[in-house]
Design a protein around this nucleic acid. Structure first.
Length: 733
RNA sequence: GCCACCGUAGCUCAGUGGUAGAGCACUCCCUUGGUAAGGGAGAGGUCGUGGGUUCAAGUCCCACUGGUGGCUCCA
């Protein structure tokens, strides 16, 4: 007879098995009414679960109005809402829509489904689906769990001709999938509690009568407990995330305990859109993307260029302090270079097509060479390089028919996908002693990558971008100190900009994979160095096995944009591969050649992505040192234009970026315009100010002006503020 | 690349088959005004591109192109 321990430590004994709901009832009717599910020894279960053994029980409840909902309760509701949405979609679109997989997410839930040929699921149907969802919620039907033996259940699912559910069931049973034919046949999920000889179903109402779905659960007691749910958007997805497998339609939705909370969430999404860097970037004229120039190619307008230039100055100064040497290299290089580095042709799908010399192309065309042959001549790996690459990578085996005599290869150039080959060549261009190490070569290097069109996104995912790149050529012993140095740079940058909301990811090797190059012992040391460096940051970080590059471990800095998407910014990567490929060496104390280790690092990542994220971080209101326009002078009327010009001249002389609004608007209008443009300081000048050589200062965000102060004092104040790179506006009369 | 939606004036958007619209911005005029938009006039568009249906297409159909959200990818 079960004795139940409650979260407060109290125990309750029952003389017969009880359900979670009965446990709640025994504590109080209010609790029973608010309960959504129970947690039995830490596992969330339906309220109807029968408890027949001693255990710990906690209840998951719907909060009182105004109280925040626990993440567990939200997840539960949203998982249940996914069922309701699926039922609504089948009612609206057709019962022949095949359901695949419908889990809760951080912000709601989705359901992947196969929409048969001839049927269409489009946003036009959302209103109908939402209405049906509301009806089902109003009907307040119970979520009824029942179990069937695996044999019965599988026979039934086969009978329903839903291969996705059959697959789900087989995976839940720990069976090898019989229907999934994708390329990455992953093993059945080893989730505790899923490997039962029985499968569970949930009817939204009465089994056999109402809508049902194969599901592990748990669910809220009735549909009425969902509160408010809404279909959000449509997307395509791949079954099991495998692009070679079936394409499914993914329907996103969200649910909240109350309509008010749902409305608040939708409102919040609207507000976030206003902070979007693409919206602000257009409004503040920071950058432009032109379809005639090309997708994903950023044109930095004068104002945006100021932000970028200031960041470049800032990091350039930090690099000097850390002993970096500046280099400049071109944006393209010979194909051969990238064959040596391994970037071509293996990653050719992610690159702009090669630039082939005209004479070679002409000659081939004249001789009637086919396109396929031409491609082979471009991509074909040279006989000279082939052996070396095979030896070193192990994995990247080159098909024999791709290896051509060097004299048959087509000459060409590649827009560079990375800067490292150029830097490797600079390192190799002169001899190095261990006494010179580390050699730190820095360049704001522009690279080009052929990102998939569907992935492009404003400034955060582009096809041409400039990294604040550097390569540190060092000895193995120097790795810890150099990685440390890189991280302190990142820390300085984030601190200066007031960015606190980032996460750190340490990518380690997957112990079960053999795709990695370099000795296990070296990897251990490098991984230890990365972890130690991350620890010294004083920020929480995650160790992610399998996330290392094939050539070494790495540390990434990840931030979120306004709509919650994560973007990788800075990265520090240890590389054992590059020095081998380029046969780099330095002379050690033993007077023998040694392989350097290369550390790639880019604390901003790229200026494009970083500025995109910065625009959202500041919502366009940049700190003084980054603001494209730092001060705007607003004469009250034409009568003060002359004095205003004098004020402007004084600001310019002090190196302040300032302009003057001599329009015939009234002062209210000029203030409104300058406020919309997020100008840090407005200087309102009228006859009163002109007489006393004063300016009336109005700082961004202030309700009204801060009062008058002498012009000279203001100029000194802002100049100091700019030089100090502070994130807040500090000049006051 | 895949699925859905979208593309009308510099910007934000209205316009469901019958003579292309509004607000802001821009130009000019009036206003000379002390803290989040005073008033008036004007100029500005082959409705993303190309085909098709129709007496008639911004509107319906097809293809392409660009964008948005998500999926996959990210050396």
């Amino acid at each position: 007879m079960p004795t139940i321990t409650l979260p407060d430590g109290k125990t309750k004994s029952f003389d017969k098995p009880v359900t979670g709901l009965e446990v709640a009832l025994s504590i109080g009717p209010g609790l029973a009414k608010a309960a959504l599910a129970c947690k039995i020894d830490g596992e969330i279960r339906d309220l109807s679960t029968v408890i027949d053994r001693d255990c710990k029980v906690a209840l998951i409840t719907q909060p009182k109005p105004g109280q925040p909902t626990s993440p567990e309760a939200l997840t539960l509701m949203r998982h249940s809402a996914a069922h309701v949405m699926a039922e609504a979609i089948q009612d609206v679109v057709g019962k022949d829509v095949l359901l695949a997989y419908g889990p809760p997410t951080d912000t709601g839930f989705f359901y992947d489904m196969y929409v048969p040929e001839g049927k269409k699921l489009s946003t036009e149907l959302f209103a109908k689906i939402d209405a049906r969802i509301a009806e089902i919620i109003k009907e307040d039907r119970p979520f009824t769990r029942y179990e069937q033996t695996s044999t019965e259940a599988l026979a039934r699912l086969h009978g329903e001709h839903n291969k996705y559910k059959v697959d789900n069931a087989e995976r839940a049973l720990g069976m090898p999938s019989s229907v999934y034919l994708g390329h990455k046949a992953s093993p059945a999920p080893a989730v505790p509690g899923t490997q039962h000889p029985v499968l569970s179903f949930y009817a939204t109402g009465v089994p056999g009568k109402n809508w049902e779905d194969l599901c592990r659960g748990p669910h809220v007691p009735t549909t009425g407990r969902i509160g408010a749910a809404k279909v959000m958007s449509l997307a395509s997805s791949y079954w099991h995330g495998d692009e070679n497998s079936d394409r499914l339609t993914r329907v996103y939705g969200t649910a909240f305990p109350t309509q008010q909370e749902l409305d608040a969430y939708l409102n919040q999404l609207e507000e976030a859109k206003k902070r979007d860097h693409r919206v602000i970037g257009k409004h503040l004229r920071l950058f432009h993307i032109d379809e005639d120039v090309g997708q994903g190619l950023i044109l930095w307008t004068p104002r945006g260029s100021i932000v970028r230039q200031e960041l470049m100055n800032f990091i350039g100064a930090e690099l000097k302090k850390q002993g970096y040497m500046q280099v400049f290299t071109p944006h393209i290089g010979r194909l051969e270079l990238y064959k040596t580095s391994g970037h071509f042709p293996y990653y050719k799908d992610a690159q702009y097509p090669p630039v082939i010399e005209r004479d070679s192309l002409d000659a081939l065309c004249t001789s009637g060479c086919s396109c396929a042959e031409m491609v082979n001549r471009v991509e074909g790996v040279s006989a000279r390089l082939a052996a070396g690459i095979n030896e070193r990578t192990g994995k990247e085996t080159i098909a024999k028919d791709r290896i051509r005599p060097d004299d048959q290869l087509l000459e060409g150039y590649l827009l560079r996908p990375m800067n490292c080959p150029h830097h490797a060549k600079i390192f190799a261009s002169s001899p190095h002693s261990y006494r010179d190490m580390p050699v730190r070569l820095a360049e704001f290097g522009t690279v080009y990558r052929w990102e998939q069109s569907g992935e492009l996104n404003g400034m955060t995912r582009v096809r041409g971008f400039t990294q604040d790149d550097a390569h540190l050529f060092c000895t193995e012993d120097q790795i810890p100190a150099e990685v440390q140095g890189c991280l302190s740079l990142v820390k300085t940058i984030f601190k200066t900009l007031g960015m606190k909301d980032y996460r750190v990811r340490v990518g380690l090797r997957d112990p079960d994979s053999n795709k990695y190059t370099g000795a296990a012992e070296s990897w251990d040391k490098a991984e230890a160095a990365c972890i130690a460096a991350a620890e010294s940051l004083g920020v929480s970080f995650s160790r992610e096995p399998g996330e290392a590059a094939f050539y070494g471990p790495k540390i990434d800095f990840v931030v979120k944009d306004v709509i919650g998407r994560e973007w990788q910014l800075g990265t520090v990567q240890v590389d054992y591969q590059m020095a081998l490929r380029f046969d780099l060496s330095y002379v050690g104390p033993d007077n023998k050649p040694h392989r350097p280790i290369v550390i790639h690092r880019a604390p901003f990542g790229s200026f494009e992505r970083f500025v995109g994220v910065l625009i959202e971080h500041f919502a366009g209101a940049f700190p003084m040192w980054l603001s494209p326009e730092q001060v705007r002078v607003l004469p009250i009327s034409e009568k003060t234009n002359e004095y205003a010009a004098k004020v402007l001249a004084a600001l310019h002389a002090a190196g302040v970026r300032a302009s003057i609004d001599m329009g015939d608007d009234r002062i209210q209008g000029k203030i409104k315009v300058a406020a919309d443009e997020k100008i840090p300081y407005m200087l309102i000048v009228g006859p009163r100010d002109a007489e006393a050589d004063n300016v009336s200062v109005r700082a961004r965000g202030a309700e009204k002006d801060l009062g008058a102060m002498p012009l000279a004092k203001f100029v000194d104040g802002v100049a100091a503020e700019i030089a100090s790179r502070t994130a807040t506006l500090g000049v006051k009369p």
